[in-house]
Structure formats: C-alpha cells, structure tokens
C-alpha cells in the first residue's frame, strides 16, 4: 500500500472526473480534493492554441492520447489539473518548435513509461491485448460457421 502522504501528494482538482465516472455506475463516498492549490497562472500554452491550425491539430491529437499523471482517469487534453496544463504547454511548445508527435511521445515514454500513453505499444506484454480480440473472433467464427447448414439440399434435420 502506498502511504497516506503519497496518496495525497498532489491536488486533485480533477476530482470531478471521479465523480462522473462514479455516477455511471453507483454513487459512493467521495474523496473531496483535499490539498492546497498552487497560485500560479497556467502555463502559456496550457489554455492557448497554436497559431498554425495544422500544428494545433497534431498537438491536440497527441494530447488526447496522453494520460494525466495526477487525475489518472483522463487524458491531459481534458483535465484542469495544473500538471496536465503544464504537460499541454510542453507538448504545444515542442510541436511549435518543429518536433513530431512521435518524437514527443517517445520522449515522454522514456520518462514515465508506457503508462503515460493511452495507446499501448505492441510488445510481449501487450500481445494478448492486441491479438486477443482477433483470436476470439476467429475461434467464434470457426465455431459458428461450422454449424451453418451446408448445401441447399440439407433439410431441417438439426432437431436431433
């Protein structure tokens, strides 16, 4: 178990997300955001778009794929947590400086691991995740198609 000091390490202004996801199944006792908030204004690119629409679109797509470190249940694109704002600033600044989304993602994964991306890579640990649905479909298809009536002359003899 993580100790208490750890679990309240960072203010969770994004508590509202937990409320919402909660609402989807049950209402339950909630942790109200319990720590203080910093008083700095958001980083310039946290709430400001890039001038070039093509660059902004690339940044937006990447931000939607990156997981917020503080709120954990949201992408940095839809979080009000300060660290998510700072990460948006980081992403937009790097895009503006000419880096490609793939480079930025690699840079972040080198620091936070694959956890930071909602798009898991294909590797040994995730092979089952990516191939599982295909296997399921193949097995199911094989079973289902084995039971269809073969040939037009086969009459309703399946009652046996």
């Amino acid at each position: 178990m993580s100790g208490l000091p750890n679990s309240i390490r960072f203010p969770a202004k994004a508590g509202i997300q937990s409320v919402v996801t909660l609402a989807l199944v049950l209402a339950a006792p909630l942790a109200i955001p319990a720590t203080a908030q910093d008083r700095l204004p958001p980083a310039p690119y946290a709430y400001q778009q890039l001038k070039d629409p093509a660059q902004e679109a690339r940044a937006k797509a990447l931000m939607e794929e990156l997981r917020c470190l503080v709120c954990q249940g949201q992408s940095i694109a839809d979080s009000d947590a300060p660290l998510a704002g700072d990460m948006r600033h980081e992403v937009r600044s790097k895009i503006a400086a000419g880096e490609s989304p793939a480079e930025i993602k690699t840079w972040l994964v080198a620091r936070y691991g694959n956890w930071v991306s909602y798009d898991p890579p294909f590797d040994g640990a995730t092979a089952l995740l990516w191939l599982g649905p295909l296997l399921f479909l193949a097995l199911g298809g094989w079973l289902a198609f084995g039971r269809f009536r073969r040939g037009a002359n086969d009459d309703e003899g399946g009652e046996a």
Binding site: E64, E65, R67, S75, G113, N114, W115, V116, S117, Y118, D119, P120, A125, T126, L128, L129
Partner: peptide, 18 residues
Amino acid sequence: YPIVAEAMGEKISVGPPY
C-alpha cells in the same frame, strides 16, 4: 488488461486509441 500487464511487470494504460 492493465492488471494483467502489471502482473507481468509493466504498467500500461488502455484508452480511447485502443
């Protein structure tokens, strides 16, 4: 799957792109 991956020693997130 994140539970399975964690058991294999890797922390991953599965989200909208998947």
